[in-house]
Design a protein around this nucleic acid. Structure first.
Lengths: 213, 213, 213, 213
DNA sequence: AATGAATGAGTTTTCATTCAT
DNA sequence: GATGAATGAAAACTCATTCAT
């Protein structure tokens, strides 16, 4: 006789959200293939059947997780208001924001990692992700132009290349932290190491971008 | 029952190697959890039982794959003889080598990706990996010192930070290529895009490293 | 929360009927085990809870479907007024009625099929079905007697055997149509094929029944 | 630690056969949707994993069952050597063979029933079934011609129609036996009832076929 | 009377690993 | 050394049914 026991929430949005949050955690920690539906159900406080009720299957649930992860970073980026700052400050802001965001959202890095393993097949299913990201590049382009007009920045810089570089400098250090620490026998996860990394990255990007005074 | 099945190879080293090569392909393509023992056996032209004969289990096989992947890139790097070049050329060489190696060994990037997902737990089991990598940092350090002595490079550069930056600039672009292309609606895998990326990375690193003037 | 969902029908008989119709469709198409409660709810325009409100469970719903299917064919048969016709015409009528009914009610054939798979266990639960069917055999018996009295029909014909034969000649052709067409590589569902079949069946039954002139 | 316990057979063909036999029983008894993989595994004396090892999935296993069922009846039919008999005897033989085969192979009727529910989709996947069945129709055609040449049989009889009629007369009676017995309140499964049915069917077919003499 | 979110038990399918030959 | 048939445990996914609103 199924369908008795425990207090039920009867709150569609809440249940959906709890499942998504649990799925984000599990997928980030174990990757797509390693994630377990059972464990997501437990983590969510709901049950397996509900995952299939709200999301069609494991794959669709993962797509929803990825969309949500991108939406979250996009929302955070749009709070930066980079165009309100002086070009140099704007670049510093973008670097430290990227760095801080990756540090506080390790699940984002890990989800991206997982998604790369699958040749972005899940992201390609999503229509929303593209548009918002392009806005960031537009903003960065505007910053570069302003800096150039002020004779501060060099010309001919592709904003997408620059964005990828900024992201890559943070990403590789953090995403590969365990591997790098093991391989180079040096703990790269200490607070001190992190401060040094942020400084190094800022030096690199501005050292490249700024015209010698 | 004579002549019933295919001729057997009876070649210990060859079978071991074929299994390792097949495992590298499968683990790189699908990740650790997504990889299938069955498929590795097929790819290797051998059979499942042999995997367990030569390697104890899936995990040990993965460790062997990772060790081999690192050994391969180490061997390639040691062929560079960076110290035979002028510091600027040495840096250029290291950047383009890293870039080319990643391009021609996508499986290395993907294995690294997978290993990061597992918090480097397999690499930590290996003793060989650490030593060789440290040699590279020593070499890079020597290059930086020489460049500084020639008043070409800025001082105070941590060779490990620099190495991580050089690797990260290539890695993020290539490893996330599918995702970035999807998200920014721009094909980053064309030959032209790759040439531009290499130029951009070299500009960034030398722009940062070299003293003006 | 006013006006939140669709307008409710609040019509007891209508809802019951819509559920029964939907269940007939689904059970006929998928069989008992293959039928889905969820789908019946959708098809009916109602919801799952209502199925359990009006019918106790899946099995009872199937019994109701079977009873209704038999009631429908019985009602149609009683409209035939076979006894108003000359014996030969009455037999012709019965054959073509059976044929036409099966053609226009494929769900009846499929439900019967399903019920046979379950050893008639659902029909046995119903009390109404037996009586009405017996009336048909009585009628057929009367027709046979009349034909015999007129020296048209042979004697010693069991009306039940004859009925089963008439039904079987149509049933097998139609129920197995897909299978037969596949197995004998000949499309038995064309209008022409159907006309030929009716002629053949009539020839067989009358050829057997009628005394040579 | 999987993979220990119980004595293993290590006989490919035997295991395959035992699974097929068990599947035939379960599919015939419960239909496709009602059949349980677990139960087939038990019946076969093997285990679930083996079903997927030899047959890809439930559906392919069912296709294999259907092919085997057809192959079995075909093989039996070809043993009849109908062309060695006088046309009238050949027809009698075919009728009684069909009847007896259906009686002794209720699983064949039930599988056919199930297949019809699925619109012959599994049979359509099989290539072998068509050819052998056509041979039967050729044989029947030859019998009809011979009977006609001897002025015993009427002309213009389509052998496929006749075959379908012969099969249908047996099939409907036997396949629907439970349902008919319930609906007409008469036990149609007794030995006496069966003898009468065979007589009736023979009377019908020959009554139709033979010219009055 | 109507709704649809929630659930436990079950169903098909997959997987790494082992054993007989 | 080599092979592939065999297996238990667990994975994803489904289903009839019930409960809160």
């Amino acid at each position: 006789m199924p369908g008795k026991s425990k207090p039920q929430t009867r709150n569609k949005e809440r249940t959906r959200f709890l499942i998504l949050a649990a799925a984000t955690e599990e997928f980030a920690e174990k990757g797509f293939a390693g994630a377990r539906i059972e464990r997501i159900a437990e983590l969510s406080g709901s049950n397996k059947r509900m995952l299939y009720y709200y999301y069609r299957n494991k794959e669709d649930l993962f797509v929803a997780v990825m969309e949500n992860a991108y939406k979250t970073i996009r929302d955070a980026e749009s709070e930066l208001h980079l165009l309100d700052f002086h070009p140099v400050e704007a670049i510093r802001s973008l670097i430290s924001f990227t760095w801080d965001y990756y540090i506080h959202h390790p699940e984002f890095l890990r989800l991206l990692n997982t998604e790369n393993l699958y040749h972005a097949e899940h992201i390609k299913q999503s229509k929303n992700i593209g548009f918002y990201n392009s806005k960031l590049i537009d903003t960065l382009n505007e910053i570069l132009i302003r800096g150039q007009n002020e004779k501060l920045f060099r010309g001919g810089v592709d904003p997408l290349q620059l964005y990828i570089s900024i992201a890559g400098l943070s990403y590789f250090y953090l995403s590969n932290n365990d591997t790098l620490s093991a391989v180079f026998c040096r703990d790269l996860s200490t607070p001190k190491a992190k401060v040094e990394r942020l400084q190094h990255m800022t030096d690199i990007v501005l050292g490249y971008l700024m015209l010698a005074g």
